[in-house]
Design a protein around this nucleic acid. Structure first.
Length: 416
DNA sequence: CTCTACGAACTA
DNA sequence: TAGTTCGTAGAG
């Protein structure tokens, strides 16, 4: 009984051992059959996607060379999609792999350098990340892949990570480096921009100041108009009255009576000036500036007048002076110092302050134009606002220098 | 250095 | 024996 029990136990053990052995054999056979499907070789790891692939793509250059795809059979290489990714880079016994099968690891085989010339490496730091890994890897793969004389042949080496992971590995670091390195041009640009903004701010302040002066002048003129005429007041004479010099008109060149010199020259100038046009193709657009350029449109020449509005004899006439109107020019002592009094000679009779409002306004407006120009809101080019091109955007003007002889294209807005 | 072309080994 | 594909020479 005992013996039979032992026999049974032995039999069970045998059976389990046999089962185990059988399973192992089966497994081995399975693996063998699996291995027999995909053969390993110097060029095939037998495990990658390319190795498992059994059909040619029929579209790559190597396939198109094949006779079965109607090719001339000159290149005689395996379909690109079937070239092993792992072993393509490995060489045996110092013999490098087929150039068409070598890969730098960053670009697809056969498309390595021709589209990415190494010359870009020194163009800019921004491009380096394209090139450094490429060059470095290429050298590395060549050295490691080739067996040196006397050393055992290299049979295999760890494959480089595939393209996407290499880019993810390299790119963030490079981008960080790039972001950390200061850009010289950017720094210069920032400084320049700061300077320009400062200058603009100063110019804006000055423009505000000029606008204030503009309104001040208008207030003075308005106050002056309220003065009562004094008939007994001495009729003003021209400033040159007290000299023996003979006066010649700057416009016509004729000798003129000093008493009416200002009156004559103003009218003479207006006569010549109105014969000429100074225009631009564009109207003036200046923020916050009241009454600056004439800007009357001439449909014939399709231009806008670019004289100061207050000085444009072509498009505006001096207002008719009524009999009871007072001159009203603020009187000064020692040339500049205001006395607080006004000239109370009837406007029609005053020779000393002829057109004083117009010239004062022109003086202020001229200063405003200069400020506007420095702010950069449409800058008139040329000698002055009367001949320039305020607010122009790329258009051509009729140009300076068209003033008649004698007038010299001058614009009188000097101190009174 | 890349690419093309081709001899030749290998395989079915 | 035809088809496949590896390794290399040589042109550019």
């Amino acid at each position: 009984h005992k013996k039979s029990k032992e026999k049974e136990r032995d039999g069970e053990r045998d059976r389990s051992e046999k089962d185990e052995l059988r399973a192992k054999v089966q497994e081995l056979a399975l693996e063998q059959s699996r291995n027999s499907k995909i053969k390993r070789s110097a060029r095939m790891c037998g495990e990658c996607e390319a190795c498992r692939r059994t059909e040619d793509c029929g579209q790559c250059d190597f396939c198109r060379d094949m006779k079965k795809f109607g090719g001339p059979n000159k290149i005689r290489q395996k379909c690109r999609l079937r070239q092993c990714q792992v072993r393509a880079r490995v060489s045996i016994g110092g013999a490098p792999a087929h150039p068409a099968s070598r890969s730098c690891g960053l670009f697809p085989r056969g498309e390595s350098y021709k589209y990415f010339p190494a010359s870009v490496s020194f163009l800019s730091p921004r491009f380096i990340f394209w090139v450094i890994p490429l060059t470095g890897d290429r050298k590395q793969s060549w050295v490691e892949g080739s067996a040196l004389p006397g050393s055992p042949p290299v049979t295999e080496r760890a494959p480089s990570p595939p393209l996407p992971s290499r880019i993810y590995e390299i790119l963030p670091q490079r981008i960080q480096q790039w972001q950390q390195s200061p850009c010289v041009a950017e720094e210069h640009g920032k400084k320049l921009l700061e300077r320009i903004r400062r200058e603009q701010q100063q110019a804006r302040l000055k423009l505000q100041e000029m606008e204030r002066r503009f309104h001040e002048l208008e207030a003075v003129i308005a106050r002056a108009k309220q003065q009562a005429c004094k008939e007994d007041e001495e009729v003003g004479t021209a400033p040159s009255d007290d000299t023996d010099l003979q006066i010649f008109c700057v416009s016509c060149g004729h000798p003129i009576n000093p008493k009416v010199a200002l009156r004559h020259m103003e009218r003479c100038y207006a006569k010549y000036e109105s014969q000429t046009s100074f225009g631009s193709m564009y109207p003036t657009r200046i923020e916050g500036a009241t009454r600056l350029f004439c800007d009357v449109y001439n449909p014939q020449s399709k231009t806008y007048c670019k004289r100061l509005q207050v000085l444009c004899p072509e498009h505006s006439r001096d207002p008719k002076v009524s009999v009871d109107e007072v001159c009203g020019c603020p009187l000064v002592k020692d040339v500049f110092e205001l006395t607080g009094e006004f000239c109370r000679v009837p406007k029609r009779k005053c020779n000393r302050h002829y057109c004083w409002e117009k010239l004062r306004r022109a003086e202020v407006d001229l200063e405003r134009v200069r400020v506007v120009r420095s702010v950069g809101q449409g800058a008139p080019r040329g000698r002055g606002p009367a001949v320039g091109d305020a607010g122009e955007e790329g258009g051509s003007d009729t140009g300076p220098g068209k003033a008649p002889a004698g007038s010299g294209g001058s614009w009188r807005a000097g101190p009174l």
